[in-house]
Amino acid sequence: MIKIIFIFAITVSVILLLSEQSSYAQSTPTVNLTKIISEDKELRLCPTCSNRVDVLYESPNTVALSSDYIDLIWKGVDVIKKHGYKIDDVVSYTTTSYTGTGSINTMVVMSK
Rank of each mutant, 00 (worst) to 15 (best):
S13F: 10
I2Y: 10
L18P: 00
E58V: 10
I15R: 02
L16M: 09
S66L: 11
E20N: 07
K81T: 03
A25S: 12
S38W: 00
P47Y: 06
T11F: 08
K82D: 06
M1E: 10
P47C: 04
T94V: 12
Q26F: 14
E39M: 00
D68M: 05
K86R: 14
T34F: 08
Q26K: 15
R44E: 00
Y69I: 02
F6V: 15
T95K: 12
S97K: 14
A9H: 09
K82P: 00
G84K: 01
T101A: 08
H83C: 02
L43Q: 05
V79S: 04
P60T: 01
L72F: 15
D40Q: 06
E20C: 07
Y69E: 09
C46P: 04
Y98W: 05
V90G: 09
N32I: 00
I87L: 13
V31N: 01
T96K: 10
S38E: 11
K82S: 07
D78A: 00
I4Y: 13
V63N: 02
S92V: 08
D68C: 00
F8P: 00
S27R: 05
D89H: 12
N105Y: 14
T11A: 08
T62L: 12
R52M: 04
Y98N: 07
D54P: 03
R44N: 00
T96G: 04
G76S: 13
R52C: 01
N105V: 08
G76P: 14
K112H: 12
Y93S: 08
V55Q: 03
K86E: 13
S23I: 12
A25L: 14
L56P: 01
I80S: 08
W74V: 10
I2L: 13
D78K: 01
L72S: 12
Y98K: 09
Y57I: 00
S111A: 02
I2Q: 11
G100H: 10
D40F: 03
C49W: 11
E42Q: 03
